[in-house]
Design a protein around this nucleic acid. Structure first.
Length: 891
DNA sequence: GACCTGCTGCGGTGTG
């Protein structure tokens, strides 16, 4: 055994790192020291820098020190864990094995796929340092044998998920099982903090701290915009004791843009980016192994097909990966990617996280990255070795994305990253947690109230809200009192417990906060399941129809028992399924970067490769209208055959833009009754009306006031319908709806009906119902993003509003126009023709302009320095804002 | 010859 001396107190961590051929980073030593000093905290660093080892080696060191002290005979014995079950104990004695040390560490990870790797990584130092420790896995993947072993005796370190932790806490022996715990680590905390899984984790942690008062909590996170808040949420009311450990200098990342060779005929609108196929294929060819990220599942399917068409030889070396593919297929692809036997994987966010793919040396992003953190996260999937550089190649799908990339690279370099906002008071998660706790030891109402108030999510939970929640799970609240299935808890000598084994079983089956709609399984007539598609897509298919899915051309045969049976198609192509997913808006940081970048362009600065390449189009925008400067809100007005158009460009992301459009349309129609058509994208929105609008900047400013925002929104969006949809998920989390036994999902329609029914019952007979209230709150906060919307309105009203008449569609307006006519299209052919016609017209106009300016330029002096602002079109009315912080407000 | 959209994550009927 190696002896420790005073000057090599950090002996073990160094020894272990040396055995791996690595040097410990300073941040790893910091975390290690803080752990040993009994602190809790958050470690943030890029992926691939060995965050996990920093805390784990602290736990290991503590174990080694305790062992040494025990050998010397001057230490307290280790805290005894639960005694081994009889069978285990006997077996151990027979085989003369030492029983492993009791549970010390709980490791929570948001993804099963990460758990297996973790077990292997955690085992390495304990083997090499000769500790008698064991590492176990407890996720849905854990085998029955493993579960049995854990029941008999917990391993020294247990890797689990937030959901499995809840399940473990739902058993009566939870206190005993966790009593010897020293530390809990929450991995990838940034993935959990902004959602209900994070809240579920907070509640689990609060319970563990009840069992073990000195429990240390450590979070591991990628870099976030709000790290201190992230730490505080993790530690709850213990946040005073928390440290924040900054990782090494950010991992070297290069963000490059694949520039279109020429901008002539480069699309002004669209999202697929097929135009860039040859260059993308070339880039894939050059690298060893590439991940191609797309923004949607159907886009991934299309790109997979296109790459394969371009390089049929790659058939055995390229793969597809997205969330609707069968798990078996996905795991196969993951395995081959990790093994380095694959050239290219086309994927969606499904590979943002997950197993380490060290062989990947290049990442390609098709289309908008939507956010800076997301871009860096994806970049980090390449160069996943200490010292290696992460590289991401961005591929524009339309002209303005070039501006986005330039903005994204700058923001990434300046580490302007998005924050993730923690949730407040989601009572559906609380209701679920109360039932989980009642299954275990039973609930002492006062004690649990104090316990949940130690979490950040429920720190402001009022006694009334608590009583309501308790009554809700005990009697179903005022409306459902008559139905025994909603009365889950019973009183037993001052505690609330669950007697019915039926209720217990059903509850365990619905633990968790992830909800998803029932989908139709796609399966070969003879052969494996390929994945799932939405019912609405299958409903449109007739037998014999061909579609593209899982990278294969399939012929639809029949639909039975919620399964679509298919066979390999002989026809070459077909339609591509669409999934109705969420619309991810451009993030606040990226949106503000784009506004700033356009501001530079407006001032004549084209100092990035992207803006230089996009210059011709930006100049068209400037000539035909304006490029908005920072602190300006551009509104383009036009009169066309079908009516009067206003294009407004707040650059706030699609959700907020849509909300703003709805709000403005509503306020406008109050002033002068009219019908309005709304279209929005990440940059702005279009209002179309058969009647003229003739609005001055002052009038626009009035339309954009924050006064009465919530009231006006309530009046103009169909709040009830939106809340009803939200309520579906809330009802599931709160345990009002049983989604069916595994393998036999309730049909989506049925689910909707029953949650809709409950929603209506609550609204009628229980108007104070707090879950209905929560549904409304979620609509405002998450769907309409009212917080961001009021910030946008404040910015708009303090901005200089420029109303610019236009005589033809500008590069900024074109995508909105194209999206609108697509919404109302009769056939896609007609639509294509119209878009083509319009594009040709615009192109000719641009050519004419260019000739004119070329003639103009020859007569001018060359080299205007400092940069001259772009020549803007004839300027419309301008009103200066009277606010103090004008241009700053836009950044 | 400009088009097609819209992400992800877990768990489960405690066992022999």
């Amino acid at each position: 055994m190696i002896r420790r001396t005073a000057d090599n107190a950090e002996f073990h961590i160094d020894r272990w790192f040396a055995s791996q051929g690595w040097n410990a980073f300073e941040f790893q030593r910091d975390a290690w020291r803080a752990y040993l000093a009994g602190r809790s905290g958050l470690v943030h660093a890029s992926t691939g820098t060995g965050k996990s080892y920093s805390v784990w080696l602290g736990v290991v060191e503590e174990g080694l020190r305790e062992r040494e002290a025990q050998v010397r005979g001057d230490a307290e014995p280790l805290t005894p864990g639960p005694s081994p079950a009889r069978g285990e104990g006997r077996r151990s004695r027979k085989s003369n094995e030492r029983v492993a040390d009791p549970l010390r560490l709980l490791w929570i990870t948001p993804m099963r796929a990460l758990a297996n790797d973790l077990v292997v990584n955690l085992e390495r130092p304990i083997k090499e340092l000769g500790l008698n420790w064991s590492v176990g896995l407890r996720t849905g993947d854990a085998s029955a044998a493993e579960r049995r072993r854990q029941k008999a005796r917990m391993p020294t370190a247990l890797v689990t998920t937030p959901e499995s932790l809840s399940l473990l806490l739902s058993y009566g022996d939870a206190r005993e099982r966790f009593q010897s715990l020293r530390c809990v680590v929450v991995d990838e905390w940034h993935e959990l903090i902004g959602n209900k899984r994070g809240v579920q984790t907070e509640l689990g942690l609060a319970r563990l701290r009840q069992y073990v008062p000195n429990l240390r909590t450590w979070g591991l996170s990628a870099t976030l915009g709000n790290l201190e808040e992230a730490r505080d949420v993790l530690l709850g009311n213990m946040s005073g004791a928390g440290v924040l450990i900054h990782g090494t200098a950010p991992k070297a990342t290069t963000v490059e843009t694949l520039l279109p060779p020429t901008m002539e005929r480069f699309p002004w609108a669209g999202h697929l980016g097929k135009r860039m196929l040859p260059q993308v294929v070339e880039a894939i060819d050059k690298a060893q192994s590439t991940l191609v990220f797309t923004n949607t599942r159907s886009q991934a399917e299309i790109w997979f097909r296109e790459i394969l068409h371009a390089r049929p030889k790659w058939a055995a070396e390229i793969a597809l990966h997205h969330g609707s593919l069968d798990r078996g297929l996905r795991e196969y692809v993951e395995g081959r990617t990790r093994g380095g036997t694959i050239k290219c994987v086309v994927c969606t966010s499904s590979l943002d996280l997950g197993v380490d793919f060290s062989p990947v040396d290049q990442v390609i992003q098709i289309g908008s990255p939507k956010g800076i953190a997301r871009l860096l996260q994806r970049a980090g999937r390449s160069g996943h070795r200490p010292g290696a550089v992460s590289k991401i190649l961005c591929v524009p799908t339309h002209a303005f994305e070039l501006v986005e990339y330039a903005a994204a690279r700058e923001a990434a370099a300046a580490r302007r990253l998005e924050g993730r906002q923690p949730l407040d008071n989601p009572l559906d998660v609380l209701a679920q947690h109360v039932v989980t706790m009642a299954l275990g030891e039973g609930v002492d109402a006062d004690a649990l109230y104090h316990e949940v108030r130690t979490t950040r999510a429920f720190r402001d939970l009022t006694p009334e809200q608590w009583r309501w929640t308790l009554d809700f799970v005990e009697r179903g609240g005022p409306a459902l009192r008559a139905y025994p299935m909603y009365s889950k808890l019973v009183q037993d000598g001052g505690r609330h417990v669950i007697r019915s084994p039926q209720t217990a079983r059903l509850h365990r089956m619905t633990i968790g906060t992830i909800t998803s709609d029932a989908a139709v399984a796609v399966q070969y007539l003879k052969g494996p399941r390929l994945g799932t598609i939405e019912e609405s897509f299958i409903a449109r298919l007739k037998p014999g129809d061909v579609f593209l899915f899982a990278g294969k051309t399939l012929e639809f045969v029949r639909f039975r028992d919620l399964k679509a049976y298919v066979r390999k198609a002989t026809k070459p192509s077909g339609t591509v399924p669409r999934w109705e997913g969420g619309r991810l808006p451009l993030s606040t940081e990226l949106a503000s970067g784009v506004r700033a970048k356009l501001g530079e362009v407006a001032a004549g600065r084209f100092d990035t490769p992207e803006t230089q390449r996009a210059r011709a189009i930006l100049e068209i925008q400037a000539n035909w209208s304006r490029v908005p400067r920072s602190g300006e809100l551009l509104i383009e007005m036009a009169h066309v055959q079908r009516g009067y158009q206003a294009f407004v460009y707040p650059f706030e992301g699609v959700l907020v833009n849509e909300g703003l459009a709805t709000l403005v349309a509503h306020r406008l129609s109050l002033k002068m009754p009219r019908s309005l058509t709304i279209t929005s994208n990440d940059y702005g929105f279009e209002l179309l009306s058969p009647q003229p609008f003739d609005l001055s900047p002052e009038m626009w400013r009035e339309l954009l006031t924050t006064d009465g925002l919530v009231e006006d929104l309530a009046a103009c969006v169909n709040g009830t319908e939106m809340a009803r949809r939200r309520f579906r998920d809330i009802a599931r989390v709160a345990g009002l709806i049983f989604t069916g036994y595994p393998g036999a999902p309730t049909a989506a329609r049925q689910l909707q009906a029953s949650s809709g029914l409950i929603f209506d019952v609550f609204r009628e007979y229980d108007p104070e119902n707090l879950l209905v209230d929560q549904a409304r709150r979620e609509v405002l906060e998450q769907q309409l993003e009212t917080r961001r919307m009021s910030a946008a309105l404040r910015r708009a009203t303090t901005a200089e509003i420029v109303v610019q008449p236009i005589s033809r569609l500008t590069p900024l307006a074109f995508p909105l126009w194209a999206a609108r006519i697509q919404k109302n299209q009769v056939s896609s052919e007609q639509w294509t023709k119209r878009v083509e016609r319009m594009a040709v017209q615009l192109e000719r106009a641009a050519e004419r302009d260019e000739k004119k300016t070329r003639r103009g330029k020859t007569s001018q002096n060359a080299d205007p320095s400092p940069p001259a602002p772009l020549p803007q079109g004839e300027r419309g009315e301008v009103v200066s804002s009277n606010a103090t912080e004008r241009s700053d407000a836009a950044i």
